[in-house]
């Protein structure tokens, strides 16, 4: 398994709260191979954004390991950590706040080289920046412009160029298109896919939009209250979901085809997501689950392959339900 570029084991992040702790990420194991895209979906509060921050070092894990090419980042320090971190970069959600308004585009994309001087290519920083602009489909002559002179989609391209500067193998994309207009989303998604093909990038693609995730991902992990509840390749998750939460999530996504009206299997969940400061005992989804039995409160279901689930699913009663049936 030498092609695994990123791996987490038992990753935990608890935030101190007034009473107890908010268990934002509570034991996440994942693997990312070279050149593949792992989609992570879930609703707000499921911990997917905290997971992203842990992966790129914006937060320190409470427990667990983050291995980049086999090296555990949580045990590294100093120069070794800096070098390892270079391999994993991030594209942020909001193109309007993720670029410093007081810096020119050239300075923004060139900043990684100012921080890591040994990463500057031989032909110089200026040319490297222009090359990056060209790669993401922007005019290389615009290096002296400021972010507010660009549209949302163009700004997101600038953010992607910045993430590419240090030639990472892994890019964590946290909702990279959700702030963009529909017609611009496709441009950015295609750009990300093209870059992956040409540069062999591996993506951790975090989004709440299940359609976008299906389009771009090879494998998908579904998160609920800090844990992965189901994971598998895209066909397994979208066509043969076995966890009730995945099924409910998929059935709730509106599909742009009015002919499906009334013919889809709608699962309406009751109530809201419980607070991660005080998650339910046992299975965390049991408070909203229609399959829940008394035993679900006592025994936490592990994320594993089960009798009726050919891919890992964290439900005692995992079973395929075709919520996405087409006709």
């Amino acid at each position: 398994m030498s092609d695994v570029v990123l791996e987490t084991r038992g990753l935990v992040k608890h935030f101190k709260a007034r009473k107890g702790a908010v268990r934002a990420v509570d034991g996440v194991d994942l693997q990312l191979r070279r050149g593949e895209t792992l989609g992570i979906v879930g609703e707000s509060g499921c911990g997917k954004s905290t997971l992203a921050k842990l992966l790129v070092g914006l937060e320190k894990p409470t427990q667990g390991e983050i291995r980049v090419r086999g090296e555990d980042l949580t045990r590294l320090g100093g120069a070794a950590l800096r070098r390892s971190r270079r391999n994993i970069q991030m594209v942020l959600q909001d193109p309007y706040t993720s670029l410093n308004p007081r810096m020119t585009v050239g300075d923004i994309i060139g900043e990684p080289y100012d921080i890591h001087r040994d990463a500057v290519p031989q032909y110089g920083k200026a040319r490297a920046v222009q090359e990056l602009l060209d790669i993401v489909g922007l005019n290389p002559d615009h290096i002296n412009r400021y972010p507010h002179q660009f549209s949302g989609g163009q700004r997101q391209r600038i953010g992607i160029a910045r993430a590419l500067a240090l030639r990472p193998e892994i890019i964590v994309c946290d909702e990279p298109v959700s702030a963009l207009d529909v017609s611009i989303q496709a441009q950015v998604i295609n750009l990300l896919e093209g870059l992956q093909r040409e540069l062999g990038l591996a993506y951790v693609f975090i989004a709440h939009d299940l359609s976008v995730v299906r389009h771009i991902s090879d494998r998908v992990a579904v998160m609920y209250l800090g844990k992965i509840v189901e994971t598998g390749n895209h066909a397994a998750i979208y066509e043969q979901p076995t966890h009730p939460y995945t099924q409910a999530l998929l059935s709730a996504v509106p599909v742009p085809d009015p002919r499906l009206r009334g013919r889809r299997d709608h699962i309406m969940l009751e109530g809201d997501v419980p607070s991660p400061a005080d998650p339910p005992s046992g299975c965390r989804f049991r408070t909203r689950c229609w399959k829940a039995q008394p035993g679900c409160a006592d025994h936490e279901p592990l994320l594993e392959i089960r009798q009726r689930s050919s891919h890992p699913s964290a439900c005692h009663y995992a079973e395929v339900r075709h919520v996405m049936r087409r006709f």
Binding site: S183, Q185, A186, S211, V253, V255, P256, D257
Partner: peptide, 11 residues
Amino acid sequence: LLESIPRLDHK
């Protein structure tokens, strides 16, 4: 517009 959106119902 319809052709530019990713779909949930097929990849």
